[in-house]
């Protein structure tokens, strides 16, 4: 298993994906810095500024919204094995297909966490810098900001694994990207408009991630548009547990399903 993990690590770092990942991580972080610099008070519609707790949470929560980016990178990496037909060689070298996939999951959990930490580091520095430039004190103590950033990094690692699992299940890179992107951007948000959704949403991946990262903007926005009551998210720790559950479930399905399929 150690050999498989180090082979997958080598495969990842011999490609250009880590470079793109780094670009995306820095880009996401910098975007947060830009938003902080502009300030929520200048958003459309205007929101409480950085000096308020809500304002600071809001800007950090937007970073949580970008957690799907590493999921897309994970999907890309796994589906690429089918697209470039390296899956044949991999299956020959590791006939126990679950073992090959477990190695991938280990590698991408680490890579996803690395991505999350890089993003959080850039975003955190940019946020503090923006506050300093604007001469405001953030509405949250620095320790709370760091804790939120850490949770976002963990959520990103979880999402990366979800992406890997979806890629392994669907095999087709475009289909997997479409499903993943469509789900996070459309399906979950659309679900919120249904009656009774407020009961289900906290337990969906997006809702659980929102609880983990303390970001309720999407839920609140939908609630205000439909005139419904705002959705009560789970406590952060429970959100983390639910997200972990989804990740494990996706990984389990991804490991179990290909076992019975022919490699054609």
């Amino acid at each position: 298993m150690i050999a498989y993990v180090s082979a997958e690590w080598r495969r990842l770092f011999a490609s250009r994906l880590p470079l793109w990942g780094l670009v995306a991580a820095i880009g996401s972080g910098a975007l947060i810095g830009l938003l902080a610099l502009v300030g929520p008070e200048n958003f459309q519609p205007p929101l409480p500024g950085l000096e308020t707790e809500i304002g600071t949470r809001m800007v950090l929560g937007l970073l949580g919204m970008l957690a799907f980016v590493p999921a897309l990178l994970g999907t890309t990496a796994v589906a690429a094995e089918y697209r470039h037909r390296t899956i044949t060689a991999t299956a020959l070298f590791v006939p126990r297909r679950w073992a090959a996939l477990v190695a991938k999951l280990v590698v991408y959990a680490a890579a996803g966490l690395g991505y999350g930490l890089a993003t959080a580091a850039v975003a955190g520095s940019a946020l503090f810098a923006a506050a300093a430039v604007k001469g405001v004190v953030l509405g949250l103590p620095a320790t709370a900001v760091l804790a939120l950033l850490g949770r976002i990094a963990v959520a990103m690692a979880g999402y990366t694994l979800l992406g890997v699992a979806v890629g392994a299940l669907l095999r087709n890179q475009l289909a997997a990207l479409a499903v993943l992107g469509g789900y996070f951007y459309l399906v979950e948000t659309a679900l919120l408009a249904l009656p009774g959704a407020d009961l289900v949403y906290p337990y969906l991946p997006g809702g659980a991630a929102a609880a983990l990262t303390g970001f309720t903007y999407v839920a609140d926005a939908v609630a205000s548009q439909t005139g419904g009551a705002s959705v009560e998210l789970l406590p952060a720790s429970l959100g983390a547990a639910v997200l972990l559950g989804y990740t494990l479930l996706a990984a389990l399905v991804a490991v179990a399903v290909p076992l019975r399929r022919d490699i054609t």
Partner: peptide
């Protein structure tokens, strides 16, 4: 084995490809 449909990651060099699979096979 050599099979007609198998391929390589396009941005891997030939050497990197061999290193990945050497690693996998020990």
């Amino acid at each position: 084995a050599v099979l007609d449909d198998s391929g390589f990651h396009p941005s891997h060099t030939a050497h990197a490809h061999l290193r990945v699979y050497a690693c996998m096979g020990g």
